[in-house]
Design a protein around this nucleic acid. Structure first.
Length: 436
DNA sequence: CCCTGCGGGCGAA
DNA sequence: TTCGCCCGCAGGG
């Protein structure tokens, strides 16, 4: 959408702040749920979005009392790492999910590294001016407004599902999940073309952050500039945003990036000193938005950082989607995606989204709601240049219909539908995902 | 057992 | 006044 196409109402939709007395209600397109929201981003979700209803995030966010019952505030707990900074044989680091409640957290502190039995250490999130990144949720009308302040300055922890799976496995087998929770299909789980070889056997416990660990040369083939699904959760859901389409065409790049606007406070209140070693650094403006992922990636490339270093670094190398950083030929591949995809009301399953997001975004957008109840993820679309053996979860039927290369969606979808996504538990995830 | 949301309370800025 | 953070409680899976 061109800026000149915005009328005042559109601008209102774009320029809201979570603290505004009135939030826009003339939202034409809602966003897909973002599992790893980072930076100073805003999203408007449908009030039907179950994940938004649950205020979910794959970051370890805990409730923070802001004495405002209308706005739910959550702050990031960071990530738990090995105090000895150990690595697995494969060179992976331990990134555990911090327990949310204090009691569980204290317990967790007493536990030892699943890899080396060393002490665990919490890396606190200080991505918001030295304080934890905060997320705000507000329900208003038919929408759920989300705003994030701060940029996570630590690796991604394992997701909630991963943590739960690990606990479950520990209970069942009495053994560290890190050992026992290997992917089904292994050994010999062959990496699909384009995948990193070691991914297949990655223990659940360890998030994969090779971008942090591996030499720069490793990024040679990690050429995708796109946010990618990267966790177990992504098996059922993820969202990918390409270019500036992260939030559909709600985005007003101009206003979003305007430093004089909403995030001024965040920018100037920040006293955090970033150094070259930090995983995340604010952009020149100090403002990131997911509307400009592309810019961010370009910036990162300019800084000599592997894309995997950043938000989109897969911390969970399941071959869920084709290895994210492998199968997209280049940034230029964005051009392969339709600029605008005919908007079509989704079929039955999608009735939960009365306001159908623009699938096109500005460049291309592919998202899968994480709604286990209402959505059925499907195998399907892969870009024209993508290896035909790689499957990705697709956002939505209507997108699938309009995107090229639709493949074996149906069996999987049928299966998932039949089984019921509520019952798509971790075991099932383990069963299904690697098979792709 | 743990997650999540709520809300009282406190201290610092 | 705002913000970060502590605490306990309750509901739920």
């Amino acid at each position: 959408m061109e800026p000149e196409d915005f009328d005042s109402e559109d601008k209102e939709v774009l320029n809201w702040d979570i603290n505004d007395m009135k939030l826009p209600q003339n939202v034409k397109k809602t966003d897909w749920f973002q599992e790893w929201p980072d930076s100073y981003v805003k999203h408007i979700y449908s009030s039907e979005d179950r994940n938004a209803q649950r205020h979910l995030s794959s970051w370890a966010m805990r409730n923070t009392n802001n004495h405002n019952s209308r706005i739910l505030k959550k702050s990031c707990l960071g990530v738990v790492v090995c105090g000895h900074n150990c690595s697995t044989k494969e060179g992976r680091k331990v990134y555990l999910r911090p327990a949310i409640c204090d009691k569980a957290w204290q317990k967790q502190q007493k536990k030892s590294c699943p890899n080396c039995n060393g002490p665990l250490k919490l890396i606190p999130c200080q991505g918001h001016g030295g304080f934890p990144v905060t997320n705000f949720w507000r329900h208003d009308g038919h929408f759920i407004f989300f705003q994030s302040k701060g940029e996570h300055d630590h690796p991604k922890p394992e997701t909630k599902l991963e943590a739960e799976a690990r606990r479950a496995m520990k209970k069942v087998h009495g053994a560290p999940a890190s050992v026992s929770l290997k992917l089904k299909g292994n050994p010999g789980s062959k990496s699909l073309p384009g995948e990193t070889q070691s991914q297949g056997s990655l223990p659940l416990t360890w998030s994969f952050q090779e971008g942090v660990q591996l030499p720069g040369s490793y990024s040679g083939h990690l050429i995708a500039n796109t946010p990618q699904p990267n966790s177990l959760n992504d098996c059922l859901s993820f969202s990918k945003s390409y270019g500036s389409g992260g939030t559909t065409d709600l985005a007003d790049p101009a206003s979003t990036l305007d430093p004089t606007k909403l995030y001024e406070k965040c920018r100037f209140s920040s006293n955090r000193i970033y150094n070259s070693g930090d995983l995340f650094q604010p952009s020149a403006s100090g403002v990131y938005s997911d509307y400009d992922n592309l810019q961010a990636w370009n910036k990162n490339a300019a800084l000599g950082r592997s894309p995997l270093n950043d938000n989109y670094c897969p911390n969970y190398p399941f071959p869920l989607t084709g290895w994210p950083c492998d199968f997209f030929p280049s940034q230029n591949s964005l051009e392969n995606f339709p600029q605008q995809i005919p908007l079509e009301p989704p079929a039955a399953k999608t009735s939960c989204h009365p306001l159908w997001p623009n699938p096109g975004g500005e460049l291309y957008e592919e998202k899968v709601p994480v709604d286990f109840n209402s959505y059925v993820p499907s195998l399907a679309y892969h870009p024209p240049q993508e290896d035909p053996f790689l499957f990705t979860y697709t956002p939505h039927p209507h997108q699938q219909c309009t995107l090229p290369g639709k493949t074996t969606k149906w069996d999987f979808e049928e299966e998932m539908t039949y089984m019921g996504l509520d019952h798509c538990n971790n075991e099932m995830l383990l069963n299904l995902c690697p098979l792709r």
